[in-house]
């Protein structure tokens, strides 16, 4: 029944007639000669069909695709040599590193005692003016005194505190600040400025916070003055 369903040669009689009317195509005249020559020469390599190279080529296409993708991914994401450094995304160099080989003040004692010119106005807060020098290694300060004959002389005095007790204002100020590569630039001390990293709106510093630390510095200053006067 199933087979008879397709036995409809009469339905396609026109097509069958057309196909039967097609001329027969014969082999070229030298076909047999060429064939027997190939056999005698034992040249049995097939001229058509799948050649060895093309067959293996298609087998290795997926593997080659994976290798190429791996290379692309590697160079795109993992190879740092190919990553262009964006200077704007760099975190500014840290203050202590910048000041390592310079004469910039390193801690509070330096800030206080390295101020110039040396003036005898000790009543002023130290954050505005300083008048003493200190020996950084021995925690001793140099006091400038006016002798009765109007000659200025230097006296070495012991400081009431040492470096281990001193306060690093930068550290304290930056203690609570969040550091990341996207944070905007700020002044890093002295004439060193951080690199430009975009047009970000700069938050104003908290004045109360500044005043608090200024008061702390002043109290240290006063303590120093008292010890000097003693």
């Amino acid at each position: 029944m199933q087979n008879n369903f397709y036995d409809n040669d009469s339905k396609y009689k026109n097509i069958i007639d057309i196909l039967k009317s097609l001329p027969k195509v014969d082999t070229p005249d030298n076909f047999e000669f060429n064939l027997m020559t190939r056999i005698q020469n034992k040249s049995f390599e097939l001229k058509t069909g799948t050649s060895g190279t093309s067959k293996y080529f298609w087998i290795f296409v997926p593997a080659a695709g994976v290798i190429v993708s791996a290379f692309v991914l590697y160079f795109a994401f993992f190879n740092d040599n190919f990553q262009q450094v964006n200077p704007f995304l760099n975190e500014p160099p840290k203050i202590n590193r910048l000041t390592e080989n310079t004469d910039y003040p390193k801690d509070v004692t330096d800030i206080v005692l390295d101020q110039k010119p040396l003036q005898a106005d000790l009543s002023q807060p130290l954050t505005k003016k300083g008048n003493e020098k200190t020996n950084r290694k021995t925690n001793k300060a140099v006091r400038v005194v006016v002798k009765p004959n109007d000659v200025l002389a230097e006296e070495i005095i012991d400081l009431p505190f040492d470096k281990s007790k001193s306060v690093d204002v930068d550290k304290v100020l930056n203690k609570n600040s969040v550091k990341n590569s996207m944070s905007r630039g700020r002044l890093v001390g002295g004439t060193q400025r951080s690199r430009f990293n975009g047009f970000y709106i700069q938050d104003p510093l908290d004045q109360k916070f500044l005043e608090m630390w200024r008061a702390k510095l002043d109290s240290i200053n006063r303590l120093m003055q008292k010890s000097i006067n003693r």
């Binding site: 082999t27 076909f31 060429n34 064939l35 056999i39 097939l46 001229k47 058509t48 069909g49």
Partner: peptide, 8 residues
Amino acid sequence: DIVQDTMI
């Protein structure tokens, strides 16, 4: 060529 390969 195919016929020749067939014969081979």
